[in-house]
């Protein structure tokens, strides 16, 4: 039956309202988890606070399993769920640039909005930077276009690259997540710090 809006089980007019409600949940949980603090977020890179790792992988595994089970039960048609396409070169270079941005700024764009909502001035400046960065990309786009469009592999899934089923890949991701949770706990014991 799902996804409900692309199949017009719920009218298209509801889509932006759903987006708003989803956003409230997203922002509330980010703030509750402590993602509104850049010092807490950056903690993962120094081992003193691994909440990012736990929330990020916890969420990815939950949604991944949810989709697989919903599909198994016939509750959602995965062909109608958007899979972001892979453009090899730009995905790798974009990820590296964002990684430098993460360790410099201590936020990523989504969490910066939850930090702005509670009055963090550093998050407001970070958002100002995002505006500038996107504007720079937009203005430089004619120069970057050929690289941006290179290495197009389409909406490719990692499970297809590895030649395994979606369920088998999810199982591997769960194992990886559990190992990382364990390493995170070890790191927090080794580098204890007061909480921010």
């Amino acid at each position: 039956m799902g996804p409900l809006i692309p199949q017009e089980i719920i009218g298209q007019d509801w889509n932006l309202f759903i987006a708003f409600v989803v956003g409230i949940g997203f922002g509330f949980i980010l703030e509750q988890a402590g993602f509104s603090s850049s010092r807490k977020l950056a903690g993962v890179f120094y081992g003193y606070d691994t909440v990012v790792l736990k929330v990020f992988f916890g969420a990815a595994v939950t949604a991944m399993l949810g989709l697989l089970f919903f599909s198994l039960f016939g509750w959602i048609d995965l062909n109608l769920v958007y899979v972001n396409p892979t453009f090899l070169g730009s995905a790798i270079v974009g990820g590296i640039i964002m990684g430098i941005g993460f360790i410099s700024g201590g936020f990523c764009p989504g969490v910066s909005f939850s930090a702005i909502a509670i009055g963090k001035i550093d998050a407001m400046v970070f958002l100002g930077g995002i505006f500038i960065g996107i504007f720079m990309f937009a203005e430089a786009y004619p120069l970057l276009e050929s690289f941006y469009m290179s290495g197009n592999l389409g909406a490719l899934k990692l499970s297809d690259v590895l030649g395994i089923s979606g369920g088998a890949l999810a199982f591997l991701v769960i194992i990886a997540a559990l190992v990382m949770f364990w390493l995170g706990d070890l790191a927090e014991k080794k580098f204890p710090r007061e909480e921010y």
Binding site: G105, P109, S112, D122, G129
Partner: peptide, 18 residues
């Protein structure tokens, strides 16, 4: 924070999402 935001803004467009 400003430098990080600029890099994230630019990188998110190149990488098609943050």
């Amino acid at each position: 924070a400003m430098i990080g935001g600029i890099l994230f803004g630019f990188g998110s467009q190149l990488g098609r999402g943050c």
